[in-house]
Design a protein around this nucleic acid. Sequence first.
DNA 1: CCGGATCCTGGATGATACTG
DNA 2: CAGTATCATCCAGGATCCGG
Lengths: 214, 214
Amino acid sequence: MAAREYGQYCGVTRALELVGERWALLIVRDLLVGPRRYGELAAGLPRIPSNILAARLKELQGAGIIRRAPRSRIIIYELTPYGRELEPVVLALSAWGFRALDEPRDEQVVTPDAMTITLRSAFQADAAASLPPTRYAARIGAAELDVRVSGRALAIARGAAETADLAFAAGPGIRRLLSGELAAQPAIATGEIELLHGPAALLDRFALTFRVAA
Amino acid sequence: MAAREYGQYCGVTRALELVGERWALLIVRDLLVGPRRYGELAAGLPRIPSNILAARLKELQGAGIIRRAPRSRIIIYELTPYGRELEPVVLALSAWGFRALDEPRDEQVVTPDAMTITLRSAFQADAAASLPPTRYAARIGAAELDVRVSGRALAIARGAAETADLAFAAGPGIRRLLSGELAAQPAIATGEIELLHGPAALLDRFALTFRVAA
DNA sequence: CCGGATCCTGGATGATACTG
DNA sequence: CAGTATCATCCAGGATCCGG
């Protein structure tokens, strides 16, 4: 038996043998947002050593979780259908881990892909279904996202939306907004969330749409 | 920053910092079935070194995921409410990893706790809701489970039920039954699943009740 | 025997430099 | 850009030991 195997006939152990190594699920997390090049992955995981990134990409490929897709001259990594089915795992980890976050420290970065997954895991489809379609331009830390909600559908793209209904910038306060610890209007009042464009009431709608349940 | 941290402000990274180390989620898996003593955990994870088990228990305790509960003179480990909320994570990993299992190898064991989680992750509450309450005595590898299904409720205990509606013994064939690859009656016909007591038709019901979706 | 603690070694991880 | 190569470090794993 390979040394790193757990010696059990069990789905959990098999899953951990495939994606349980350090950094592996973070690569999957970013690829869940979209196909990425090697350099994009490295940028989204600033602390990963390049040899580890290269090794993980090979292992994930061997396990049938990701594939290399040559596009003209550049190489793109993308999830296979089986790899995409890790989405429930990553979203569950995101929702659970989010509640263990405290205030961000200086050395902690907020990447667009990580924030996209955070919002996906916080998305309340039931609540959104009864709300009008809304487009948000959210700047959270250094990450700018174009967030479109329409009924039970959610689409998040990188970059700021040109014609958002609401544009806002948030720092650490985003955590307490998403956890429900802090309501939208107090967050604006204290400056924890800065409105850049659009009616303040739409931030209440945002808070209804995205919520990490306690 | 601690060396083992990922340097991102993100729920996924936080979760992996808390339960991403080797063996940690397997301890959680077994504790999701019920409180366990140190020796019971060691027995359910035959290949874990005792120092690693001790270290993980301390770390999980420090993270507020498990707690030590002194019962008279013995020490019991159990999940905290926050730890119990890892259940969606573990079940999602179980369902995903189950599909990557191939035939069990000789050195792979099947523990009662692992099998309990497997069945929980495969439980189809919607299908079960329209079926009559049923009690199964399932022997899978060396693990004997008492499985009671009543409407959308599922209760699994260790040991064989005395008065089950259906008693059966399965080996590797259980995987193909749960995956839908193999139907109940062919599994009986080929001897992959051995009926010990009760009508064969109840194995069809079992297969409808427990299914790892592809 | 239970519930660990201690010591030691090998391999995985991490930092850095380098290359087609 | 997309990785290798090299070297240092640290953790996992195995064996052993200890206190109640």
